[in-house]
Design a protein around this nucleic acid. Sequence first.
DNA 1: TTGCAATTGCGATGCACTTGCAATAAGAAT
DNA 2: ATTCTTATTGCAAGTGCATCGCAATTGCAA
Lengths: 132, 132
Amino acid sequence: MIRRSARRMTRQRKIVLEELRKVTSHPTADQLHQMVRRRLPGINIATVYRNLEILTDEGEVMKLDVAGTQRRFDGNALNHYHIRCSRCGRVDDVHMDVVDSLEEAAAKACAYTVLSHTVEFVGICPGCRDGN
Amino acid sequence: MIRRSARRMTRQRKIVLEELRKVTSHPTADQLHQMVRRRLPGINIATVYRNLEILTDEGEVMKLDVAGTQRRFDGNALNHYHIRCSRCGRVDDVHMDVVDSLEEAAAKACAYTVLSHTVEFVGICPGCRDGN
DNA sequence: TTGCAATTGCGATGCACTTGCAATAAGAAT
DNA sequence: ATTCTTATTGCAAGTGCATCGCAATTGCAA
Ligand SMILES: [Mn+2]
Ligand SMILES: [Mn+2]
Ligand SMILES: [Zn+2]
Ligand SMILES: [Zn+2]
């Protein structure tokens, strides 16, 4: 029989998750590494990456592959949409309903079995627009 | 006064564009490099990248930053949606109407000035589904 | 407590893309 | 046609983000 290896809740993994859950800013791995380091000075960036990978496939967090930039991570694993500022690169949540009907429309418009979808808006954040 | 440098239509640029326009497959830069090399054996990958960059900001082609994979290029610069096969990675067009109302909804649901949006579907392509 | 596989820190490596530079060539001016 | 300017090229080296190999450590089940 196939057995998945038993996961351990290490100090590192716990704090990576806690720090990511604390913010709504969709940090990159190295931003998160800085945050975690305040509590765990010796932690290595590779450990942060490895844990984010594991937490992602456990469904605890979400990987965001933002167009043309460094990968970001989201402590909220429920599907929701994002907007990226084209000036400064920050990424924020868009608090609108997910449009599931897009997937039905797509299923009719191509030959694939449709499984999921993501939407990324691009715009100008308030800070950049109002000049700060 | 600011003047943009005059663009030259080099043999390389012309053929990169022609080869990209020939296909509907959204090739990566090195796939396109292989294609172009059949007509221009000496062309370097850096030249392909540079020309794709230039053609993109001239609006002739489109860069696709597909979630978690190598960048792909699209000879059709008009906004349309894509679907990626989670098994084999191929990317195809989804021939459905672009839902502009998403941007209005997003504008109400966040503080950004919304400029554009992209949708990426994920699914299983016919080839992978039907086992080839 | 003990045993042992999962996990870590660290350095090395990989990969996709970008850049510096001298040589080349597009295309406007003559 | 020829000359001239400078955008563009090929090549090699460089960047940056992410991943990997490995010996040492550690969670945790027995
Ligand atoms: Mn989010
Ligand atoms: Mn397309
Ligand atoms: Zn901004
Ligand atoms: Zn497939």
